[in-house]
């Protein structure tokens, strides 16, 4: 079923017209401007700066310790030890595969849960009227202002009371909702989900949860996709709390890769090979999700 058609059924003609207009925008019909050469040049510069550190990581990963020590600024041509270094990481005693699996589990579960809960809460805060709405929202935002370093000790006490130390759930549960996500979805709904759509759905007899499911969730797709991506990356690179509560016996990737630095002299070719291994899944995610994400953004507010 085409999305506009579906909206017409579920949310009424006005909403469908609105959606069609928005898609028109997104498809570039009557788009206000095209990128000129200035835009392309500036973006190319930005992209080169963005790309360099990743390439630099790869350069070091393909080199060896003496070469790195001798050349503080590496040559732009990769060395020949990349596969060697990768296999050194995989063969070292750092539980790489277990860590990879743990990281995937943690990142996937937290991303799905953050998106779901944040979308629900965001929809309520942005579009529903209820008592204490503003105060509760301010409270959510204020919770972000608590310095995280300090929470470690009480959180650890809590986790050992629950018997969760050393288990993945100790990393998953604290990450299952974020104030950041709730705030983000609230703001997105506020600006991109018109009341007329919700009203239309209500008039057509949708209850709240169905209005959410049929109207709000599709509208939130681009923002939800971004939130999922951000949450995934944040969870993937998180070091301190997993290190404290899990330790090296049941590690996530950053915790296990940290062990590659466990000597007085740091072999950067080995460490960076580990970083490359840990970054590949993220880049794959980018390539797969990127297309989805951008087309999601392009489709504007409503897509079925």
């Amino acid at each position: 079923m085409s999305s506009v058609g579906m909206i017409e059924q579920t949310a009424g003609k006005g909403a469908a017209r609105y959606a069609a207009r928005r898609r028109g925008n997104a498809l570039g019909v009557g788009s206000n401007r095209r990128g000129g050469w200035v835009t392309y040049t500036l973006l190319t510069i930005v992209l080169l700066i963005s790309f360099y550190p990743i390439y630099y990581t790869f350069l070091l990963a393909s080199s060896d310790a003496p070469t790195i020590a001798q050349n503080p600024i590496p040559s732009l041509i990769p060395g020949g030890n990349f596969l060697d270094n990768i296999s050194r990481v995989l063969n070292s005693d750092i539980k790489f595969w277990q860590a990879l699996w743990n990281s995937i589990v943690v990142a996937v579960v937290t991303s799905v849960s953050v998106v779901l809960f944040a979308t629900l809460a965001g929809f309520s805060f942005a579009k529903l009227r209820f008592r204490g709405r503003r105060a509760l929202l301010v409270f959510v935002i204020a919770t972000m202002a608590v310095p995280t370093q300090l929470g470690v000790v009480p959180l650890f006490i809590l986790m050992s009371e629950l018997g969760w130390t050393g288990k993945l759930i100790a990393v998953i549960v604290p990450g299952m909702v974020t104030a950041f996500g709730v705030f983000w979805m609230t703001q997105y709904f506020e600006e991109s989900l018109p009341y007329e759509l919700i009203e239309a759905a209500r008039v057509d007899g949708c209850n709240m949860i169905r209005t959410f499911w049929n109207v709000a969730l599709p509208a939130a797709k681009p923002a939800a996709a971004m939130l999922a991506l951000f949450t995934f990356v944040a969870s993937w690179t998180n070091f301190f709390w997993p290190f404290i509560v899990l330790g090296s016996s049941n590690p996530t990737l950053p915790v296990s890769l940290q062990l590659l630095q466990a000597s007085y002299f740091k072999d950067y070719s080995l460490i960076m090979a580990g970083v490359v291994l840990a970054t590949i899944p993220l880049i794959l995610l980018f390539i797969v999700a990127g297309k989805q994400l951008v087309s999601g953004i392009m489709a504007g507010a409503v897509k079925g």
Binding site: G28, S31, R33, R34, G35, T39, Y40, L42, L43, V46, L47, S50, F51, P53, I54, Y56, T57, F230, V233, T237, F239, P254, L257, Q258, I271, M272, V275, A278, T279, L282, I283, F286, I287, G290, K291, L293, V294, I297, M298
Partner: peptide, 29 residues
Amino acid sequence: LAAMLDANLRAKTFWRMGVLLPYVVMPVA
């Protein structure tokens, strides 16, 4: 940057994802 990317560009995905690349670089790196 967002305004530039909002323009009707060729290879949109490429530019948009490119801008976000630094975010995936591990903090240690």
